[in-house]
Each structure stands twice: as C-alpha cells, then as structure tokens.
Amino acid sequence: MERGAGLDDQAADRVDLSDRRWEDRREFITAMAHLYRGEISRANTWRTRLDATTNWAVVTVAGVFTVAFSSAQHPHFVLLLALLLVLTFLNIEARRYRYYLLWSYRVHLLETDFFAPLLVSPSRPASDWADHLAESLLHPSFPMAYWDAIGRRFRRNYVWLVTLLVLSWSAKLFLHPVPTRDWETVLARAAVGPVEGMVVIAAVGLVCGGLVGVSIASLLLPAWGRGLPEVVRRIQKRAGPLMPGPKPRERLATIITSHGQEMARRIMEELQRGVTALTGTGMYTGEVRDVLLCAVTDVQVPYLEEIARQTDPGSFVVVSPAEEVRGKGFRPFEPPS
C-alpha cells in the first residue's frame, strides 16, 4: 500500500515539459543564456565564412593579375574568367550573408529585448520579444532579400575587385601585345573565339551596369519604400521571391463563449494581448453569448486554444489569417506618405 502511494507521488511529481510555463525564473534565464551562446556561435561561424569568401576573391584577382600581365602573349579572357569567378564568390557570399543576418537577428533580439532589460530595475522585457524569437525558431526566414544581399556585399567589398578587373581588362586590350588607340583593333582583340568583340564588351558592360543598379537599389529602395503609396507596397508584396522581409504570421481569433469575462481575463494576463468583447445571439439556440476578438501571433494560437478549452469546453474558436496587424505588440503604424 505504501509502495503504491510512493509511486503515485513520484508520478505526480513528474513535469510534462510540453506544458511547462517556466515558473522558475532562474531556469528560464539559464535556458536563454545557453540559447544566446548557441546563436553567437552560429553567427560567428557564418561571419568567418563571409571573410573566407572575400579572401578567395582577393587571392583569385591577385593571381590572375600576375598571369595576365606577366606576358603580352597571354590572352585577355583570363581576366574575364577571373571576373566570372569573382561573381561566383559574390553569389556565395550573398547567400552566406543572409544566413549570418538570420543568426544575428536572434542575437540582437536577445541582447536588446531580454538581457538589456535584466540590467534595469525593475526588469521589464518587451511584451512581444518572446513571440518574435519563437517565430524565428519555428519558422526561420531570411531578414533580407537575395538581391539586397548582393547589393550590400558588392558595395562593401566586391566593387573594388570588379573595378580592378574591368580596368585591367581594358588596359590589356589597349596595351597588349602592342599599345594602340585604334578602336577597330581593340574590338578585334576583345573577340573571344567566334564571339565578336562588340558582343563581349557589351556583355561586360551589362554585367557591371546590373551590379551597379542592384547596389543602388539596395541602398535607396528601403528608404523609398517607406514613402510609397499603399497600392505600390501591396504590389511589391506579391512581386515574388526577390522582395525582402518575412511573411507576417498574425492571426485573428474569434471566440464565441458563455464565459467571456473569465476567458478575456486569462487572455490578457497570460498572452498579454488585448481583447474586444461583442454580444451575439445563437440563432439555433437563441442564447446570448460573448464574442471575443483577439489578434495573436502564430506561436500563441495553441495557447489561446488551450485557454478556451480550459475556461469553456463548449466554446467555439475560429482562427483566421490576418493580412496585416499593426499596433501595440505588433508592427508599428507607418507614417503617412
């Protein structure tokens, strides 16, 4: 009998980790510290990979210069091959930069919204920082578009390498094997096999112009986007994978219940979300019910459903995707254009 009671006590002491609410503050801070160390390690790893890619590009350019100008008989398209390699490295670095920003976003979120408030008495972290962090962990998305990463890395590092290659290629055409100022001779030298020189020069100019355009766009469009009309912004949202920013995952919950006061209180206290109460009448039963409206994040939906189940098992919950939610606890209102 005593043994059975002991087993019951042990079973009662077991904690279901899936239902844990981190009532122990020390355990929660310890878990966040370990998460912070892990995200710092990831960010440092990808930062090292960024530097390695840049080093590859620099070494490639330096080696090609040595080969191209060591003899007048060496062909000019060696420099064009080096340009293709540098563009390949730029593509790799842009991809790595997006991963680096993903980990850096989490590190910055922990530093500014969790650790920094701990240093201020009383400790008051932002109400929605955990939602943003959980959203990034459950549904990772790059905080920057691919074309924007290309533009930024080109401005920071690769503009100098590409400029040196293009200038060296032009000098090779005009100087080797003998100096010339005749444009026809330069066009003849620029030819690569059956491809005419004018086509090669136009292709190089198009590539360089495209890089400059993407670089300028990545610099100016974020500022312009804040002043664009709403219609243009909506078109940009549907413009495909080149547009920056993760997709919003806000939800609008509609709860029909006969325990509106208690359920609204729990939602406001446990989820830190505002609730709007309406009065409705069931057309089948004729009973008066409370209709609660609440905007929540995708991460909070399971907790909202659990609150509804515990408070009123007979409640009716409808969760709909929201196109956009702005206000306290979500994205701020943008100034009018």
Score class of each variant (00 low, 15 high):
residue 107 V to A: 02
residue 19 D to E: 13
residue 45 T to L: 10
residue 10 Q to Y: 05
residue 45 T to S: 15
residue 69 F to A: 04
residue 70 S to M: 03
residue 29 I to T: 13
residue 67 V to Q: 01
residue 140 P to L: 09
residue 123 S to V: 04
residue 12 A to P: 01
residue 47 R to Q: 15
residue 100 Y to S: 11
residue 101 L to S: 00
residue 113 D to T: 09
residue 117 P to H: 07
residue 31 A to C: 05
residue 93 E to T: 01
residue 14 R to W: 07
residue 80 L to C: 05
residue 130 A to C: 12
residue 81 L to D: 05
residue 67 V to H: 09
residue 63 G to N: 05
residue 47 R to L: 13
residue 44 N to E: 13
residue 98 R to C: 09
residue 38 G to Y: 13
residue 11 A to N: 09
residue 128 D to N: 07
residue 95 R to G: 15
residue 108 H to Y: 11
residue 60 T to I: 09
residue 26 R to W: 14
residue 79 L to S: 02
residue 53 T to E: 13
residue 81 L to M: 10
residue 37 R to W: 08
residue 108 H to P: 00
residue 49 R to D: 02
residue 125 P to R: 03
residue 70 S to K: 04
residue 33 A to S: 14
residue 117 P to F: 03
residue 44 N to F: 09
residue 92 I to M: 03
residue 120 V to E: 15
residue 136 S to F: 02
residue 90 L to F: 06
residue 42 R to W: 09
residue 63 G to C: 06
residue 85 L to G: 12
residue 63 G to D: 01
residue 80 L to I: 13
residue 129 W to R: 02
residue 16 D to I: 12
residue 122 P to T: 10
residue 132 H to G: 02
residue 127 S to T: 15
residue 13 D to A: 15
residue 94 A to T: 06
residue 12 A to F: 12
residue 133 L to D: 04
residue 121 S to H: 09
residue 73 Q to G: 04
residue 34 H to G: 04
residue 28 F to M: 10
residue 90 L to Q: 13
residue 109 L to K: 13
residue 13 D to R: 15
residue 95 R to E: 14
residue 83 L to E: 02
residue 139 H to Y: 07
residue 80 L to P: 00
residue 115 F to S: 05
residue 130 A to P: 01
residue 49 R to M: 08
residue 124 R to G: 08
residue 104 S to Q: 15
residue 13 D to N: 09
residue 112 T to L: 11
residue 59 V to Y: 14
residue 119 L to K: 13
residue 68 A to I: 01
residue 82 A to F: 03
residue 76 H to Y: 00
residue 78 V to D: 00
residue 39 E to W: 10
residue 117 P to S: 07
residue 122 P to H: 05
residue 43 A to V: 10
residue 23 E to K: 14
residue 90 L to I: 14
residue 116 A to S: 08
residue 67 V to W: 04
residue 72 A to F: 14
residue 69 F to W: 06
residue 49 R to P: 01
residue 39 E to K: 10
residue 95 R to T: 09
residue 137 L to C: 09
residue 74 H to A: 09
residue 86 V to Q: 01
residue 58 V to K: 11
residue 115 F to M: 07
residue 125 P to S: 03
residue 19 D to Q: 15
residue 110 L to S: 13
residue 60 T to R: 03
residue 35 L to E: 14
residue 104 S to H: 12
residue 26 R to S: 12
residue 26 R to L: 10
residue 118 L to K: 09
residue 108 H to R: 13
residue 84 L to Q: 06
residue 55 N to S: 04
residue 115 F to Q: 06
residue 39 E to Y: 07
residue 76 H to I: 01
residue 113 D to V: 02
residue 117 P to N: 06
residue 107 V to P: 02
residue 35 L to F: 12
residue 48 T to C: 09
